[in-house]
Amino acid sequence: MTDDVLLSAKGLTKTFGDFTAVDGIDVEVRRGESFGFLGPNGAGKSSTMRMVAAVSPVTSGELRIFGQDPATHGPAIRARLGNCPQQDRLDEELSVEENLWVYGRFFGLTRAEVRARADELLDFAQLTERRKDKVEPLSGGMKRRLVIARSLINNPELLLLDEPTTGLDPQARHVLWDRLFRLKRQGVTLILTTHYMDEAEQLCDRLVVMDHGRIVAEGSPRALIQEHSTREVVEVRYDVDDHGVHAGPLEGIGDRLEILPDRVLIYADDGDAAAGAVARSGTEPLSTLVRRSTLEDVFLHLTGRTLVD
């Protein structure tokens, strides 16, 4: 059923001059899936998304969206997908609803279709009350919601969201997740990028971790955690400048230690037991916290760096 593969990339590469932003990645996304790109700043997520959105030419490798080549079928592809770019790209002099109307017209929708669609989407984005207001004074989160609403104006089959919730407060994020779930249930395929582990765990059936333009791991959130981390993690903080000084006494507790500037992470399947061992180590921690392992830990393990600083 190749018909059900909405995105297929083989050896997809993007270079800017000498710099390789995306370095030969292989990805496949099927209809109805929700798929995530996870990675730190500069990993190449946006560069990938822009190629997938058929707005940025592929340097090398093969890319098919809806089975079509963006180099030759750009407009046909763009007509079917929704694109929420990382930057808002709103005309701030226009009103909220005008931004939706003009954008809908770019897709060749009729005036009536655009109006009806805009009404629904304003509701979706909880912006109905602000519809007549200029965009300029809106809060960053409102603008973000408007951009997401705008990307849905053409009723896309595939929705691309580049950091959809950056700048949203926690409550607005949860509301948005809920909306995206509903879209997914209606059969819309989602591809998103994020820095947020909880977002990736909530929204993605499957994800890839990107670093330096390469894919370093792939799988469902649960599988990735199982493969690259332990069930639980103990976070230990000390009143010292360099947490490395405690590496010695803690050695041997749990499966693995990770020393960060501000804390020590102990990976263990039984967190409570590990915490007990820390208490007996004589290191006098300020605090000890046992939590479940997350994608953050996966990322840390894979790249040796934290994701959100």
């Binding site: 809806f66 407009p75 046909a76 007509a79 079917r80 005309d91 109307w101 003009v102 017209r105 770019f106 897709f107 060749g108 929708l109 009729t110 279709e113 669609r117 053409n154 009723n155 089959e157």
Partner: peptide
């Protein structure tokens, strides 16, 4: 015929594309 229906969408003519952008 609506361009809101899923699947391959009806291509826009040059006039339609221009007109949509002029609207902005």
């Amino acid at each position: 015929r609506s361009r809101l229906v899923h699947g391959e969408r009806r291509p826009l003519s040059a006039v339609e594309r221009t007109w949509g952008l002029v609207g902005f």
